[in-house]
Nucleic acid binder design. Structure first.
Lengths: 345, 345
DNA sequence: ATGAAAGCGCTAACAC
DNA sequence: GTGTTAGCGCTTTCAT
């Protein structure tokens, strides 16, 4: 915190008033005569006074700070989300503390705990791994928490959450492929994201069933847990061959990075996308637009996810009533998917 | 800051000791008898005591928090950098406050000011727009600041900085193209990043001169300021045709996003990369690996940039002597560049 | 309209 | 070893 700074006492002394008068003047309290108020402000400016937010926080019991936990800061998905969060946080005069959980339960708790000690006004947790078992400890915290796309099966019902409709997303992807004429549609998923992966898989199965199609067991490829630690692109690359062997003509991928991996594998294997195989991603990260062919993908409104989550937290802080939110993803058709009725077969 | 929490007073009362004894016990002060210490810790645990970092900060004059300013949180480049920062910050027990400047001078100052009020222990600013004119105001701050890849021409010499060698980067790019046999090499830059863009352009010119080649004026395309607000991909797309018309066979692009834009434009114009035209990017963001063809690019060690910057700040805080750092970029050859001696011309 | 005094929760001299 | 006291810089009754 460096050298001693100017305090309201210093200003008070210089202005020949009490420190409480300074405090009031600086905060435009209506009871201070306009003249002294201006005089005090002038002196404060001259002395380069910078209010000490720490002292203010101790007194007011508000830090005007929120904590945000994401799995990885470098992940383009969370980049967008945090951008959205920060935008509305700043507008509301709140600063954001950022921490990474690396999809590790311990680190997630550690981050939340650190925020708790720092007395943040609220916490946002993306991709949480917290289950009901730990609800107890968290309940103590008494700090408003909003979960974004929580990955736990049993959402602690006492907290607020906002999430994207994975079932709907999966349905959009599958229906798109079906509408293109595909009948052998696979799913390429990841092993360690319990909830979203599971719901997308379920959604995929449901959509298939509803359209009168079925899914063979070998049309679903999920990476082993061991690969879970690898990056998603690698997962896509490793798993793609299986699905091709299984004979699918269209694949719904867990997310865009996985889809990119699949695309890379196709290039290596001489499989043309979308002529030989259609690929659909999930998320709609910037990257999806720039690969060749550009990815057809189920977009999550990432910026809005962040913005709305922050707005929910703001509402909680202002003690408004808050409804949990389920956001709808939307399909963006691009070059990686096409019909099966190939002319040049 | 929510409801009233347990304080050391509460624990003291319950343990039948004074609050300072509790304070000492909790912090393993050697003067407290082991038995009471454990007893107190036990009680603290039972009462779910969570130390109030705000009060600690007010007393110790340290917040164990640093502030980080980047131009955009969603930018993949800064994502990596911040990831690096957060890693070493957390290891050192520091939390990070994150804010975006959107390449706007006012917002940058506002962010720094906000950090100042919050009494952060140190500040990291990436892509700063601060010039000597404002050095005065900043000097008052008396908070250690480390600049990362400062974009101002006149670096305030009183602060620490770490940056990447743009001249060397440009040279690597140009020499690579030259070694491939190119003699008509262009530069595709952006209009609003004064320093890095200028140094890369200069480096490009120097490298050309050194290898005995020249550069025609229309071999350099810089987007207008107006496009500056658009995204880099759009800039690349818009500017590429000019350079092609000018007859270059190889282009050094300001960064990867610009290069991707150029690549997209090529695809539309039916220009094959690298057969008809070689492209070299800058940064080495993940995306560069996944476009087709993958980008040959001058990589900045992004994670290391963040880590080292944070380490520098840590050193400053521990009052070690600190040297400014200039990091070297390195070339990664991939598919977007190739020789000019085309066989099928 | 302004000042005096208490207190937010903690650490650290200084006593004993 | 442990308690007493002061104080970090601010906001906020309560007097006047």
């Amino acid at each position: 915190m460096s050298k001693r700074k100017i305090s309201i006492e210093d200003i008070a002394r210089r202005a020949g008033v009490s420190h409480s008068t300074v405090s009031r003047a600086l905060r435009d309290n209506s009871l201070i005569s306009p003249q002294v108020r201006e005089e005090i402000k002038k002196i404060a400016r001259e002395m380069n006074y910078v209010p000490n937010a720490v002292a203010q926080s101790l007194q007011t019991q508000r830090t005007n700070t929120i904590g945000v936990v994401v799995t990885s800061i470098a992940d383009p998905f969370f980049g967008e989300v945090v951008e959205g969060i920060e935008q509305v946080a700043r507008t509301a005069g709140l600063s954001v503390l950022l921490s990474a959980s690396h999809r590790d339960f311990e680190q997630e708790i550690a981050a939340i705990d650190s925020f708790h000690r720092r007395r943040v006004d609220g916490i946002l947790v993306a991709d949480s791994r917290i289950t009901k078992h730990h609800t107890q400890q968290l309940a103590q915290i008494a700090v408003p928490i909003v979960f974004l796309n929580s990955q736990t099966q049993d959402q602690p019902e006492m907290f607020h959450f906002i999430e994207i409709d994975d079932y709907l997303g999966a349905r959009l992807a599958v229906e798109h492929l079906v509408s293109l004429g595909h009948t052998s549609i696979g799913y390429l998923g990841v092993g360690d994201r319990s909830r979203s992966n599971q719901q997308r898989l379920e959604g995929y199965r449901m959509a298939l069933t509803e359209t009168g199609l079925s899914s063979k067991t070998d049309w679903v490829a999920i990476s082993d847990e061991e690969y879970g630690r690898t990056d998603d692109v690698a997962i896509g690359q490793q798993q793609l061959p299986k699905l091709v062997t299984a004979g699918v003509t269209g694949i719904f991928c867990y997310n865009d990075m996985v889809a990119v991996g699949a695309l890379l594998a196709c290039q290596e294997l001489g499989i043309s996308v979308p002529q030989d195989l259609s690929l659909v991603g999930f998320d709609g990260i910037a990257l999806s637009r720039y690969v060749t062919p550009p990815l057809t993908t189920v977009c999550q409104p990432m910026l809005e996810l962040g913005r709305s989550a922050m707005q929910m937290l703001l509402d909680v802080l202002m003690e408004k009533s808050v409804e949990n939110l389920v956001l709808s993803p939307f399909l963006v058709k691009r070059g990686s998917s096409a019909g099966t009725v190939t002319s040049d077969q």
